[in-house]
Amino acid sequence: MMPWKDVCSSDDLQPDSGVCALVAGQQVAVFYRVKEQAVYAIHNYDPIGKANVLSRGMIGDVKGEPVVASPLYKQHFSLKTGVCIEDEQISVPVYPVRLHNGRVEIQVALSNNGEMKTSIHEEASV
């Protein structure tokens, strides 16, 4: 199993909003939903708007699926799977993330050729 990487204090998270963390050279958007006490981590790069902005998007749910809306052109990406709701061909990587002893921890792996591995279906949990 991949090691958990310490990212920041859980106090650094923004309630019902997102922040961006630099983890193993990757930009990771971390979202915190207060009511569900849940954290989610996806890549920060918006493949449609082509900019590192997803952490600044608004979060919510579409038919129960937790999502972030891109701040550029408003497409929704599932926080669980990274799949774009408007175009299922497009998705962003998601990462396992947890709150542990008051810290935020994320698993990001580097593969042999230096590219990211993503664990699309592993649900982030607290």
Binding site: V7, C8, D12, Q14, V19, C20, A21, L22, Q27, V30, Y45, A51, N52
Partner: peptide, 15 residues
Amino acid sequence: KRFRHFINSDQPDDN
């Protein structure tokens, strides 16, 4: 605190 590109680094966005 929110006005940083990274919560855990002072680097700017290289994109």
